[in-house]
Amino acid sequence: MLPKQRQDQIVRALRADGAGGVKVLAGKLGVSEATIRRDLEQLHAEGRLTRVYGGALAVDGGDEPFADVNAIHAEEKDRIARRAAELVTDGESLLLDIGTTALRVAQHLHGRSLTVVTSNLAVLEELQNDEQIELIVLGGFVRRSYRSLVGYLTEESLRQIHVDWLFLGTSGVRPDGRVMDSTMIEVPVKRAMIKAADQVVLLADRTKFPGHGVARVCEPGELSMVVTESGADEATRAQLTEAGVKVVLA
């Protein structure tokens, strides 16, 4: 892989996750940590990211196009999404968060008798023609590049409903089990979703354990379950289990 291609992948990964450590990025791209450090220094000098101790932060220059994010860890996301969809019984109601893993959950719900509530415009497009599913779309301000609805109207809509399940996304899970997010504008919506659900299920691939994020979404005790992969950090998984969270491996 050429240095330019590798550096573009680093920027895409940071925009998807909000932040990334040197070790995690090296593992994703299959290169040495020294190579990643050099790339981060160059990208920092070019203004494409912000270098911090141990890694880097995405530059707030707009959201990564949804399709690009959807292509990252696609197989892992699909396994997690399929396992999540299996948790729901016909006749139940569920909330689907923003993001690409939630879209993949929707893809595994076709033909089932369910009520789906979402602020995810990609989920709307996926399920709008499925007559078996009662589809409820929350109002709000449209973030076009990330295909989501946010803001006061979204939060107010969530205060008027209650569902059986919430499938929640995240930028990362801290070693102590706290759920974080790097997109500040989405955090109030996520918190309102948690209050509107009986069962809160976090969907996160192994790269989110432990992960990064600048804003706290919730404490581990507010989760009912986490669906992840066997490669997710064992110490972080242990913290979640200690907090009473059921950890399911897809």
Rank of each mutant, 00 (worst) to 15 (best):
K4Q: 13
Q5N: 10
D8P: 00
G18I: 02
A19W: 00
G21T: 12
V22S: 08
V22F: 04
V22K: 13
L29E: 03
L29Y: 14
G30Q: 11
T35G: 08
R37E: 00
R38H: 10
E41P: 05
Y53G: 03
G62C: 06
D63Y: 10
D63Q: 12
E64I: 03
V69L: 05
A71T: 14
A71R: 07
E75I: 13
E75A: 09
A84G: 09
L87W: 08
L87I: 06
V88Q: 10
D90W: 12
L94F: 09
G99K: 12
T100D: 00
T100A: 00
R104Y: 04
V105L: 06
G111S: 06
V116M: 05
E126P: 08
L138F: 14
R143Q: 03
R144F: 02
L149M: 07
E155P: 08
E155H: 08
S157A: 14
R159D: 02
Q160N: 10
D164E: 11
G172I: 07
P175Y: 06
D181M: 09
I185C: 08
E186I: 15
K190H: 08
F209L: 04
P210A: 13
G211F: 00
R216K: 13
P220T: 14
V226N: 03
T228D: 01
A235Q: 15
A238W: 03
V245T: 12
V248A: 02
